[in-house]
Computed example of a mutant assay.
Amino acid sequence: MLRTPVCGVLGIDVPIVQGPLGGPWRQSMELAAAVSDAGALGSVPTTLRTPAQVREDVARLRDLTDRPFAVNMTRRPFDPEIFDAVIALAPRVFSFALGEPGDLVARVHDAGAVFLQQVTTVEQALRAAEAGVDVISAQGTESGGFSGQVSTMALVPQVVDAVRPLPVLASGGVADGRGLAAALALGAQGVNIGTRFLASAECAIPDEWKADIVSAASQDAVKVQFVEHVLPGPTEGGYETVPRSLRTRFVEEWNSRPEAAAASAEALRNQMMTAMRDGTAYELIPLTGQTAGLIHDVAPAADLVHRLVAEAETALRDLAGLVRTTE
């Protein structure tokens, strides 16, 4: 079994974290439960949820699994009421993204939880380390969520060097065991994966979106350059990031007309809110990373975890075989 030191910190068996995958679709705790039961770390999103819904989600997840999981929040936007609800639920891991952790770290530690912080630059990683977080996830621009401009290959080893001995996870551009093995070679102790779990049997996104992921090439996942005119911006302390989406007519049109998007911001926001309410937001902006080009099937989440580990172990053995000592 592939195990690294971060597994002990997070209470898991294998060094894989499922990204929270929050968004305007029906949330299902079956995905997080399946990932956690397979020995990795499932995640509960809180984006666009109410405190009552978050409490219901966590209660449902605890009915499905007794394994550790993470509850995620972001600064896009940050809701203090949801944070209070999360702290009261005392998850094993609290994960935070898209902004500075600030004084949240102390409150999370007081609740007995591990603080996992996502960053997109070395400078953000240094500030997170100074704030006392326990684990850092270095997210490259390949990812489907809100991310920065630096690739995973360039970002991860810099973050590892900057915050050592804090454990680092690699995020963005990882969808199979070769990616996990590469992350370990870069100095990370594990991976944080989103898009590959979107295309899982348990994920509650529409089947049409899953099919589009399976059929997409990496170049079909593009940055949504006009996002500031469609979705709420970060609250105080938030990072300036841009998400990645599969190409749609909506994305292609407004990416090519940035000035028109700015002038039409109110109409675009109303269109997105309507799509969120009727469950068709994925037809406008289906957030997806460049790893879509590596994904060729929709599979049960537990199978994906086991496949990632097996492939990584094979890749690491093959790499070891390339090393020859000279007499």
Rank of each mutant, 00 (worst) to 15 (best):
A175Y: 05
T50F: 10
V86W: 04
V71N: 02
L246T: 00
G233S: 00
T65I: 11
A265L: 09
P206R: 07
E202P: 09
A267L: 08
A52E: 15
G177N: 11
S95C: 10
I193Y: 02
Q219A: 07
P15Y: 07
T235H: 00
S245M: 09
A221Y: 02
P80K: 09
A188L: 10
V17T: 07
I82L: 15
S36D: 02
L184K: 06
F94R: 07
V105W: 06
P5M: 02
R257N: 10
L98R: 06
A32L: 09
G39M: 08
F96C: 13
G112D: 04
A275P: 11
S95N: 13
H229V: 01
V35Q: 02
A129M: 08
R67Y: 12
T47N: 10
T291V: 14
A85H: 07
L319P: 03
S218N: 00
Q124P: 07
A154S: 13
I213M: 06
W25E: 01
L186V: 02
A59F: 09
D57A: 13
T47G: 06
L10W: 08
A261M: 06
V323F: 14
V160W: 10
A85T: 14
M153F: 14
E30N: 11
S218T: 00
D13E: 13
G11T: 05
G11P: 04
V108F: 11
L104C: 06
P234L: 01
G144Q: 04
A299N: 05
V17F: 12
G145W: 07
A175S: 12
V309M: 04
R76H: 06
V227P: 01
Q124R: 05
G190N: 02
L316P: 07
D207R: 14
A182N: 05
T288S: 15
E208S: 12
F69N: 03
A128H: 00
A59T: 13
D134A: 11
E30Y: 12
L304N: 00
R244D: 03
V222T: 02
I285A: 07
S151Y: 03
Q124S: 08
T121F: 04
A154T: 15
D297T: 14
D220R: 01
F78R: 08
L64Q: 10
A301F: 08
G237Q: 00
R67D: 03
H229R: 00
D318V: 11
V105G: 08
A52S: 12
T325W: 15
K210L: 09
V6S: 01
C7I: 00
A129I: 04
H306L: 10
D84E: 15
M272N: 12
P24C: 11
L104Q: 04
A312E: 03
L322F: 15
G179E: 14
K210E: 09
L10T: 03
R26H: 10
S28G: 13
E202Q: 14
S28R: 12
L184F: 06
L304G: 01
Q139R: 11
A111M: 07
G238K: 00
K223E: 13
F69K: 06
A312T: 05
P5I: 02
E130P: 01
A211W: 04
M1R: 08
D297Q: 13
R49F: 08
V35D: 01
T152K: 09
V122Y: 05
S28T: 15
T152Q: 11
R127N: 04
V6D: 01
E202T: 09
L21G: 01
A38K: 02
P243G: 04
